[in-house]
Computed example of a mutant assay.
Amino acid sequence: MNKKVFVNAVKAIMPMCIGDFPFSFIVGALSITMGMSVWQSTTWSCIVLAGSAQMVALNMLKNGANLGIIILTTFIVNLRHILYSASVSSHVKTAPLWKKIFLSYALTDEAFAVTIKELGENKASKYFYYFTVMLTFWFFWVLANFMGAVVGAAVPHIEKYGLDFAMIAAFISIVIPQIKSQACTVAAVVATMSGVLLVVLPYSLGILIASLLGVIAGLCVDLAEEKKNLASSLEKVA
């Protein structure tokens, strides 16, 4: 039984492991250009396990942002995980505390996408399935980061090879598929335009302000859509 669940879980997450491998490799390589050692980069990847946050942090470090601004910005970037947690919480209410801690640690975009259906079906093997997905993705993510850091440390002046552009391209490739509604579209457009207009601000404050403006704009559109749908439903009832 567990063998079948293990195989199914690995098969489900493997395409995302392969897709994210270059992403983590780039993060590892670029972290070396920011002054990290190979082991610092690898440990950072083990703890954070969040590609978008790591890329944003590296870009802000490159532009001389202070630690407080970096922490606040990466916090805003990762706010989407609150929604993931809300979706998962109803399926893991009876889980012991230690399981919930590990569930929250590994709640990445990829893990959520692959496991939410399995958790919702409330099978006896759902936690084994989740942890298999989590550990498989974690292993390949950290391995890619380590390999990227080793290459970054071995190649002199690796920052001259334009890997920072690859980082931006990878981030765009992650964001674009998530734009599936009017609210997301508005948030993306507002954040992008604000980021371009505010690029002159010091300490990468433009990224922080643009992120906040994007979130606020998307929320306003989402609330307006809900209000419109509610009014439409009341009219039908009347």
Rank of each mutant, 00 (worst) to 15 (best):
M1R: 09
K3I: 12
K4Q: 11
V5F: 01
K11E: 00
I13H: 05
P15A: 10
M16W: 12
I18K: 14
D20A: 12
D20H: 13
P22C: 10
S24G: 13
V27G: 03
G28P: 14
G28A: 15
S31C: 10
I32L: 10
I32W: 12
M34H: 15
M36S: 11
S37E: 11
V38Y: 12
W39H: 11
S41K: 01
S41E: 06
I47M: 11
I47H: 07
A50C: 09
Q54N: 02
A57N: 12
L58K: 10
M60S: 07
L61M: 10
L61E: 05
K62L: 13
N63W: 09
N63F: 08
G64V: 07
G64E: 12
A65V: 03
N66G: 03
N66V: 07
I69T: 15
I71Q: 02
L72K: 10
L72Y: 11
T74Q: 06
T74P: 02
L79Q: 08
L79H: 08
R80H: 09
R80G: 06
H81T: 00
H81R: 00
L83Y: 15
S85Y: 04
V88M: 13
S89A: 15
K93Y: 10
W98H: 08
K99P: 06
F102I: 05
L103F: 08
L103R: 01
A106D: 11
L107V: 07
A111G: 03
V114Y: 03
V114I: 11
V114N: 08
T115F: 03
T115P: 00
K117D: 04
L119N: 11
E121P: 02
N122T: 09
S125V: 09
Y127A: 04
Y127W: 13
T132L: 01
T132W: 01
M134V: 06
L135V: 10
F146G: 05
M147E: 11
A149Q: 08
V150K: 13
V151F: 13
H157P: 01
E159C: 02
E159T: 04
E159H: 07
K160T: 10
K160N: 11
G162S: 04
D164K: 01
F165P: 00
A166E: 02
A166L: 06
M167R: 15
A170M: 15
V175Q: 12
I176P: 01
A183S: 09
A183N: 13
A183T: 06
T185I: 09
A187V: 06
V190Q: 05
V190A: 06
A191T: 04
M193Y: 15
L197V: 07
L198W: 14
V200F: 15
L201W: 14
P202F: 05
S204I: 03
I207H: 03
A210G: 03
L213Q: 06
V215D: 01
I216D: 01
G218C: 11
G218D: 14
G218L: 08
V221I: 12
V221T: 04
D222S: 09
A224D: 02
E226L: 00
K227Q: 13
N229C: 04
A231M: 08
A231W: 08
S232W: 13
L234G: 00
L234K: 00
L234E: 01
K236F: 08
V237D: 11
